[in-house]
Write a protein that binds this DNA or RNA. Structure first.
Lengths: 352, 352
DNA sequence: CTTGACACTCTCGCCACCGGATTGCTAAGT
DNA sequence: ACTTAGCAATCCGGTGGCGAGAGTGTCAAG
């Protein structure tokens, strides 16, 4: 039917039309037809010509018509092409950056979770979408100080100060009583040996020490190593990310179906699937985008997720981003997520 | 029109009819008409007679008709009368109690927040409604141990062990450097003087000491009192209650309107209004119920909240309960909330 | 006081219909 | 060869009518 489709890439003109179509659709959510395009696209073409181009674009899978006599809307593939090569990113306004920075720094003294919450809320507020921030993997964060406190009944309270004045507690059930003095010595030993190294490394070293117990070790060292190893065991799982502004998603028509919403919110509650998705962008660096069906999870078919990893000491420790309908303002959202990741990274690093 | 309304209290027969009407409506959510009632109420009355009674009940404000030719549904006042004098409570099944107990005890070693989360989730799961548990006011919980750790840059980490092996951290910005030894002495002083007393009392005493500084105090005591007072200052607010199973609310037809849901979920997020409501039942003891409009918050017009306070050392420290549509199975929910409050209380007390 | 009967009212689902919007196609124009 | 105007066809969304079903209020008889 259509003229030769020499390549799978649309012509320059077609790309321009596709871009304006998507931009328009993102703006007001209505399928856009040939007449509207012929007016709003800068090109001086009649609706009929536009229709021909649109037919091509449809054949390429970039756009689709909900029904015969409605305009076209972008497909996931269309959005993908758009964000990859068509979108014209808009740097966030200074005021927005300032707001982000302010709300993150406001929590600087709190633990990593507090920072994550703040970032998530700020993201949501600026983008009017749902914000999500994973709670940093504590494993790759440097140990600053360790301390033990005896509790009643053979229990010991382990206190870890990590990274930027963040504190973690853990209650250990020991196999015998330890005196306050023993515990202090153990802590001293561990502090001298390990301060500044990251938790994963410390634990690895301790486990190795435990296995390869050598004659040269005295009782104190053995105790220290054993207690330390227990203190560093990964604790109860707890929530792995902070989600904010879920309710914002109810404002979008494409999600205003109660059934869809329920599925979505239940997935948010489960955490599992969302987390897997976020994990995927732990590997890559820079902003990553999952559009609709691309995520592989049915519940997210009508959603897009824009993420970026954040770092401590140039090491990726978490991911943040936003979740919204596929029809979201990518040109605005992508830079915002990007800059937020930078801000969070530098906030986490700012501890001496 | 109707015969004399001698009293505002319905007759015995009318109450029976009202009860079956409400029970029926709670079961299947449809307005119930005279014919249905004439069959399902044990009484052997014709629909016409029932209609007369229903007219009376309507005049009293217990029931209302959505429109001319639908049956009647209970009003808030009707539900109120029902739960106050008509309802036949069903004790929870043993298996349900066991499940509640198990999930609460499972978190016994965690902090109070973990217990609250568990209770909330369990409540939600058993009732198929949203569960809510306030995080206990830490003020009225006994201090078991206090400890200070010097951090870098005039910062001091305060560690409070309270109640049943629960730990709280706080980072204090001090006005001068303190040596490790100074801090240890301060901690010793505070521990000797205050262990076992509840935080509010301790803080009150410290504040008093600070104001009425006497000659008899030495430097050590002054420092200790000053640091202690700062450590006990109420920290960042943080969330005040844990809500679970909000998505369960989406299953109810009366709430399946996106707009209503949005209002509801936003209120959940704000915390403020819900918290005020929960606070109201901090005063009273025993199960308390807010039905629809009674709450005073428009957003909750179509919801009921069933709450009960829970205690530590016979002192009310929090509230728990469920949130659901006004049309909920009160006869089942009320006893469940009641027993959960008892279970949580005893879990919090069980620490030696 | 209860009951059967009856007219009335209101909702809901169904169907038909119409206006509006957009498309694909064809034939003519540049 | 590409563009364009014109045209028939398609489909959605809203509107109005219609009938079935359900329940009510009332009245007069038991």
């Amino acid at each position: 039917m259509a003229q030769d489709i020499a390549s799978v890439l649309p012509s320059e003109r077609a790309r321009h039309i596709l871009r304006t179509l998507i931009e328009q659709y993102i703006r007001d959510g209505q399928p856009v037809g040939s007449r509207t395009l012929s007016r709003s696209a800068g090109l001086d073409l009649s609706p009929a010509t536009i229709r021909n181009v649109m037919a091509d674009l449809e054949e390429l899978g970039f756009i689709a018509a909900p029904h015969t006599s409605a305009g076209r809307i972008p497909t996931a593939k269309g959005y993908r092409f758009f964000v990859d090569t068509l979108v014209r990113l808009q740097p966030p306004a200074d005021s927005e950056v300032a707001m982000l920075q302010a709300s993150i720094e406001d929590r600087l003294r709190g633990d990593a979770k507090a920072i994550a919450s703040a970032a998530s809320a700020a993201l949501s507020s600026i983008t009017s979408l749902a914000g999500v921030v994973t709670i940093p993997r504590t494993s790759y964060v440097p140990l600053r100080h360790i301390e033990f406190l005896p509790l009643s009944g053979r229990r010991v309270l382990a206190i870890l100060v990590v990274n930027n004045a963040e504190v973690q507690n853990r209650i250990l059930d020991m196999d015998r009583d330890y005196t306050e003095d023993e515990l202090r010595r153990a802590a001293n030993y561990l502090n001298e040996r390990f301060t500044g190294r990251d938790l994963a490394a410390v634990r690895a070293q301790l486990v190795e020490d435990l296995n390869g117990t050598r004659e040269s070790m005295n009782r104190l060292m053995l105790d220290s190593i054993s207690i330390g190893e227990r203190a560093l065991k990964p604790g109860a799982p707890g929530p792995e990310y902070v989600l904010s502004g879920e309710t914002k998603l109810m404002n979008f028509e494409e999600l205003s179906d109660v059934e869809k919403l329920r599925g979505l919110f239940e997935a948010f509650g489960q955490q599992r699937e969302i987390l897997r998705l976020l994990d995927r962008s732990l590997a890559a660096q820079g902003v990553q985008i999952f559009i609709g069906e691309e995520s592989g999870y049915r519940i997210l078919d009508e959603c897009s997720i824009v993420t970026a990893p954040y770092t401590v000491d140039d090491r990726i420790v978490g991911v943040l981003g936003v979740i919204g309908p596929t029809r979201m303002a990518y040109e605005r959202v992508i830079p915002i997520v990007d800059v937020t990741a930078r801000l969070v990274s530098s906030a986490l690093n700012s501890g001496s």
